[in-house]
Write a protein that binds this DNA or RNA. Structure first.
Lengths: 182, 182
DNA sequence: CACGCTTCCTATCATTGATAGGCAGTGTAC
DNA sequence: GTACACTGCCTATCAATGATAGGAAGCGTG
């Protein structure tokens, strides 16, 4: 089952996440299309497994980081790792962070992996002084916006993502400034 | 042809942009599915027409605004109008601003409408002191990130979009500060 | 050996986008 | 007034794709 998911990722990388076909996937793993239904109840179930797998990859990616002791730098390194991960594989990014697949909604179980990554992110943000839910929301939206704009308008480049550190600095400074004002 | 596009938008609103089917669309306009090919060379051509139509709607929406004379407030009102437009109809937002449709790429002609909106946006940003391409990019990414996060995590709400004005202020202030520093 | 379980197969569907070819109505040229 | 062409829509049919039904081969256990 894990190897089927791995082959599915290969297909997604070469033909886009929407170009993954059960017939092609079955051919690639040396089976006939109906046999895949022994492993996945539906095509959406396959995507669900891929979603969970991708989030586990992401978690492993950020857990392998050696974060600087300075919380602000740690946040930068962490977010940079996320941005790199997201822009590295467009198909994966599409499945994990966009609503590309019509009708796809991650299962409770697969969503847990995503929430685990989210919790990890929040702890890094907290350490850097991003504590309020509003600020967490805004920072996430900003980073997501960078990734999205990068992917949509300049795939493979860094016209947007190169501003990541500056935007983080700007936002952290703004938080500090607001805190001082109170 | 315009009326077919209008019906297609209705279908998109009720079943999602991915749920638009040529058979259903034909039924809705009182024809058989193959007859639609007299108006659109393919389903992607239909989406292209919808893309152009949606961008014209957007352009009309922002052109109808009476912008405050203060450039900063004008930018806020303008961006608010955009955010409202984008979050108002998820299906339209998906077609216009996300890469939802596998294989869909707007035609040169339809893309012109999008660029027209972009040019309008840039002029409003310019007036507010957002001049460098880098700053324009970042501001667009931020606003897009808000819309995206809103749509994905809290559709119909305003948990993210309510921070729009504050983020604009923060970014404009940052530009001013950087300018002073030079 | 008989039974049951797993694994994969063949055959077949329904849906959907797309193509081929035809037919009725309408207007125009001669 | 008849022939012709053009427009607008139709029926019939395809190929691709996701999904289901039912069966056969292999394998282990009692």
């Amino acid at each position: 089952m894990a190897s089927i998911v791995a082959v599915a990722w290969e297909l997604a990388r070469s033909h886009g996440i929407g170009g993954v076909t059960l017939h092609a996937l079955a051919r690639e793993v040396g089976m006939r299309q109906p046999s895949l239904y022994a492993y996945f109840d539906s095509k959406l179930a396959l995507f669900d497994a891929m979603f969970a797998d991708g989030n586990r990859q992401l978690l492993a990616h950020v857990d392998a980081l050696r974060l600087p002791s300075d919380p602000r730098n740690a946040l930068k390194v962490y977010m940079r790792a996320f941005v790199d991960f997201a822009t590295e594989d467009p198909a994966r990014q599409a499945l994990l962070f966009q609503r590309i697949i019509p009708g796809f909604e991650p299962s409770e179980e697969s969503y847990a992996a995503a929430q685990q990554f989210m919790a990890r992110s929040v702890s890094v943000m907290n350490a850097a002084g991003v504590v309020d839910q509003d600020d967490i929301d805004c920072l996430i939206a900003m980073v997501g916006g960078l990734v999205d704009a990068q992917q949509s308008n300049d795939p493979g480049g860094h016209r947007w993502t190169r501003h990541l550190d500056r935007l983080i600095d700007m936002y952290l400074d703004d938080i500090k400034r607001r805190r001082r004002r109170r």
